[in-house]
Computed example of a mutant assay.
Amino acid sequence: MELLQVAQRATDLPRATDFYTRLLGTGPVGRFDPPGLVFFRLGGTRLLLEAGAPSSLIYLRVDSVRAAVRRLRAEGVAVVGEPRMIFRHDDDALGTAGTAEWQAFILDSEGNTVGLASLEAPEPE
């Protein structure tokens, strides 16, 4: 079994499409209007923007949470959770052993919280 699709609330579809195009660095792969659906491809999972969808907390993998937050903040995106190291990967069960899981949170154009996550070097102790 694999995750096929995640839906995200988008009350202003053109605005949300523009936001996610900039955030993801790629445009949508499908638009159906009516009924008002926009799809992005995230690896093997589709991200659906739809007015009738509930807000979902999605986490997007980025190369560096700290660099992504600097870039997004400079573009005027609201940061609601500053970058921080969450835990260290002691083995390869959830990530590469020896790295640390970093996370931060932003608000998208529709007011949904979006998590950013990366595997980076741990902070020195």
Rank of each mutant, 00 (worst) to 15 (best):
I106A: 08
R61T: 13
L23V: 07
F19Y: 10
L72G: 04
P14I: 07
R66P: 09
W102K: 00
R73Q: 10
F32C: 04
G52L: 11
R84H: 14
A97I: 13
M85Y: 00
R31Y: 03
Q103T: 14
R70C: 04
T26M: 04
D108I: 03
Q8E: 14
V29Q: 05
R22D: 13
D18A: 15
Q5A: 14
L57P: 08
A10C: 10
L24M: 01
V80Y: 08
F32D: 10
P83K: 03
V79Y: 04
A53R: 05
L49Q: 01
D18S: 12
D91L: 10
R71N: 09
M1P: 14
A51C: 13
E2R: 15
L119K: 05
V80G: 07
R46Q: 14
L48Y: 08
G98V: 08
D90I: 09
Q5P: 10
L24W: 01
R41Q: 13
L116N: 00
P28F: 00
A104Q: 01
V38E: 02
L13M: 09
A104V: 05
T21S: 15
A121P: 06
A51V: 14
R22T: 07
V80L: 09
Q103D: 05
R84G: 07
T113G: 08
G36V: 06
G36E: 06
R61P: 02
A53E: 03
R70Y: 02
S64I: 06
E120G: 02
V38H: 03
L42F: 10
R15C: 09
V79E: 04
V80A: 12
E110D: 15
F40W: 05
S64F: 02
A121R: 13
S118G: 01
L13P: 10
S55D: 14
R73I: 06
V79P: 00
L60R: 02
G30Q: 07
V65D: 01
L24E: 02
E2H: 15
E120R: 01
L24F: 08
G52V: 10
L57M: 12
L24Y: 03
L60P: 00
D92N: 15
G25R: 06
D92C: 08
Q103A: 11
R84P: 06
S56W: 02
G44Q: 12
V77K: 02
G81E: 11
L3R: 12
D91P: 04
F40D: 01
P34I: 01
E125R: 11
T17A: 07
G52Q: 14
L107E: 12
P54L: 08
V69A: 00
I106L: 11
M85Q: 15
R15P: 03
V6S: 13
I86N: 06
G43S: 09
R84T: 05
D91Q: 05
V38K: 00
A7S: 15
A93D: 13
P83R: 04
D12M: 07
V62G: 02
D90P: 04
I86K: 09
T17S: 10
F87V: 09
S64V: 04
L60H: 02
I106T: 11
R31D: 09
Q5N: 14
